[in-house]
């Protein structure tokens, strides 16, 4: 049997990806997580002296704290299996990527294990976030310098 032939056969037999179901699950769970985050911003604005501009930091920290609890008690994997991107895209998913790696590599010690592997999964997000921010601000700076746009 040729490779092409086999690929066809395999594709026929393998159950198709449920695109719509996955997308809807991601939408609902992602939406709910963001709504919880939204509620937390109100909490910090009303009960503490945060403004709309500064409330991001405590909100994100709180969300990641919740993510730690869910990850530690083995619930985030269940959520992830159901929601897919719905639980991976919110900042709780970033927290889960960092925290799960930290927990996992504890057996290799604090330095080589936790320290060396904590960004194993989330590292690429940080890399691309920082690198793209760098190049975009460089481009903007050039545009400002030649007078095309303003800050």
């Amino acid at each position: 049997m040729q490779q092409e032939q086999y690929k066809n056969l395999e594709q026929q037999v393998t159950p198709p990806t449920p695109y719509l179901k996955n997308a809807l699950k991601a939408f609902f769970v992602g939406g709910i997580i963001c709504t919880i985050g939204h509620a937390i911003t109100y909490f910090y604005i009303i009960f503490f002296d945060f403004t709309e501009n500064t409330v991001g930091n405590p909100t994100v920290s709180t969300m990641i704290f919740l993510s730690m609890l869910l990850t530690g008690f083995g619930l985030y994997t269940k959520l992830g299996q159901f929601a897919g991107a719905g639980s991976a895209v919110p900042v709780t998913g970033f927290g889960n990527a960092v925290i799960s790696a930290a927990i996992e590599h504890r057996t290799e010690g604090i330095v080589l294990g936790v320290g060396g592997n904590i960004f194993k999964l989330a590292g690429s997000v940080i890399l691309f976030g920082v690198a793209s921010a760098f190049f975009i601000s460089l481009i903007k700076l050039i545009l400002v310098t030649i007078g095309v746009v303003q800050w």
Binding site: A26, F27, I33, C34, G37, H38, A83, G84, A85, G86
Partner: peptide, 14 residues
């Protein structure tokens, strides 16, 4: 918040 957050996650899933 629900809808926009949900849509961003949906795009991620796609």
């Amino acid at each position: 918040a629900f809808v926009i957050g949900g849509i961003i996650c949906l795009i991620g899933q796609l």
